[in-house]
């Protein structure tokens, strides 16, 4: 018997596998296919203060070993998430869920986090300061240590639950931004959000995505994510939730060796709806193959 349980910011979860925000909705679509209670937890669709339609379509483009998306934080707004989505989610998921929050001003993050912090089923707040697909907000908070510090500090002041700050890879020095979040009181870091990219339609000679740019995700970005998690592990003491291209149990182990305490699985859910279940099912056998008895023993093992 191997141990897949880990503790994420003081909350024990059965395994480190967490579907990433924006690839799992509020869980219902997947709950039609399998019992999603097998997951460690999941990060629900990015929620903002007000309802958002998001960007015009096309929002999606194919890439080598991955995809671009520019959904643009479509969501019904925090009030509707609390009144409509969370009660439905509770019917299919009985564990603590990770609430993913985004905003366009520090006050937006404060408003949304304060509301979601009061929800019993919310275990962690994942604060996205790294969305590449909205203008005048999102990523702009995650591109300097000062603004990352400011958002983290403000959210921590109004919340009681662990706050995990989700970072952008579209920066020159991610470790300094992670350190600023830790200094501001963050309980964890999740990384990486998507890499900004573009595809051009040769027939129309214009970008495929209506937003022009989109976030690149999928197996292609795994090496970038591993490198960045490795760097941030050396810069902070708080736990890291590693993500970027994870599609297999081997990828989970590799990401944990780089320094992640838990992992998020994103694009893989869209291509293979059973991806997270398959990873969880395969994890014990893959651990045994590499002589791992307890996942806790490999966190940061590559350092």
């Amino acid at each position: 018997m191997v141990n897949t349980k880990i503790s994420l910011c003081g909350i024990e979860i059965d395994n480190p596998v967490i579907p990433a925000s924006g690839t799992f909705g509020f869980g219902y679509e997947f709950a039609e296919l399998y019992d999603i209670n097998c997951l460690g937890t999941f990060s629900f669709k990015g929620t903002t203060k007000d309802a958002r339609f998001g960007n015009p379509t096309p929002r999606i483009a194919e890439c080598s070993s991955g995809m671009l998306n520019a959904v643009g934080l479509q969501n019904p707004g925090v009030e509707k998430v609390i009144s409509d989505e969370l009660p439905k989610l509770a019917k299919v998921f009985n564990k603590k869920v990770m609430a993913n929050v985004s905003g366009f001003a520090v006050e937006d993050y404060v408003y949304t986090c304060e509301k979601l912090d009061k929800e019993e089923q919310v275990g962690w707040l994942e604060v996205n300061i790294s969305c590449p697909n909205v203008h005048g907000g999102g990523m702009s908070f995650g591109t300097s240590p000062e603004s990352a510090y400011e958002v983290t500090k403000a959210v921590k002041a109004v919340t009681t639950k662990p706050v995990i700050i989700k970072l952008s890879p579209n920066v020159t020095d991610i470790a300094s931004i992670a350190a600023a979040c830790e200094n501001a009181g963050a309980d964890g870091i999740s990384m990486i959000n998507t890499l900004m990219g573009m595809r051009i339609n040769l027939k129309t000679r214009k970008p495929i995505i209506a937003n022009k740019t989109g976030g690149y995700s999928g197996p292609a970005i795994l090496p970038v994510a591993l490198r960045m998690v490795y760097q941030v592990y050396e810069a902070v003491k708080i736990p890291i939730v590693g993500m970027g291209g994870i599609s297999t149990a081997e990828d989970v182990i590799e990401m944990m060796m780089a320094g992640a305490t838990a992992v998020e699985v994103g694009a893989a859910n869209l291509i293979e709806p059973y991806a997270c279940k398959n990873i969880i099912d395969e994890l014990p056998a893959v651990m045994e193959r590499y002589g791992i008895k307890d996942l806790n023993e490999i966190i940061g093992g590559a350092h």
Binding site: T23, E29, K45, R59, I60, A61, N69, I208, I271, P273
Partner: peptide, 22 residues
Amino acid sequence: EERMGCGFGACMGCTCKTKYGN
């Protein structure tokens, strides 16, 4: 028709506006 990510409602890649909502 629309360019899709997942095809089963999870990613919000193909949303359009209608008189009955998104």
